[in-house]
């Protein structure tokens, strides 16, 4: 084992992390209510809906589910810390409360801000974490969103400097060319669920 900066961080319990409330369609159906009469499924009828398609009952495109903070949280919380095989959610590096989404249907562009909290104030991997978050969000969100990832104020000894780096598009771009850095970032994203 190499020397870890923070070998024994505090970990949140998975079941205490914020999750989306299960909707009716994701809840497992009860055995009794799902017992459809056998004659209800007529393969000859044009409206027959085999299981393959019917797994979401809200199969209706007119109901729009817009991108919200929980969705952003779900995208990044299962990323892995570069130092531990533990997720950023469990380490409380990312928190639902520190994510905001501005997505006005009237506007052409939207804005997502995410503030992260390193596990210790002098963590030298904070830049990598920030970069990883930027890459992940850029990959996973439609291009109309501007993405603002920053280190939460007062949670790191050099947070100003760090945020300057993360806000600088050119520096982010050149960091993405760096193979070692991208290797680390790739590892972080690998664990995403």
């Amino acid at each position: 084992m190499e020397n870890l900066q923070n070998a024994n961080p505090t970990i949140l319990n998975l079941s205490d992390l914020p999750t989306r409330k299960p909707t009716a369609s994701t809840k497992p159906k009860s055995a009794l209510t799902s017992l459809a009469p056998s004659y209800a499924n007529d393969p000859f009828a044009p409206s027959s809906v085999p299981e393959l398609v019917s797994d979401d009952s809200e199969d209706d495109d007119s109901v729009v589910e817009s991108i919200d903070a929980q969705e952003i949280y779900d995208l990044v919380s299962t990323m892995c810390d570069p130092e531990h095989p533990i997720t950023l959610g469990e380490l409380a590096v990312v928190n639902l409360d520190h994510i905001t989404v501005q997505d006005d249907p009237e506007e052409l562009t939207g804005l997502i801000t995410l503030e992260f909290t390193p596990t210790i104030t002098h963590c030298h991997l904070a830049t990598v974490i920030g970069l990883g978050l930027v890459v992940r969000l850029q990959q996973a969100l439609p291009p109309r969103f501007r993405i603002d990832v920053r280190c939460r104020e007062g949670t790191h000894t050099t947070d100003r400097q760090l945020n300057k780096q993360l806000a600088d598009k050119e520096r982010v771009m050149s960091a993405l060319e760096n193979e070692t850095l991208m290797g680390l970032v790739g590892k972080m994203i690998e664990t995403c669920k």
Binding site: D56, D61, E65, I67, Q139, A140, P142
Partner: peptide, 18 residues
């Protein structure tokens, strides 16, 4: 597909893109 109105579709799109 990342801008699909359905969340579950977006999720698949993200995983596929990765």
């Amino acid at each position: 597909a990342l801008d699909d109105p359905k969340r579950t579709v977006r999720k698949e799109a993200v995983d596929t893109r990765v």
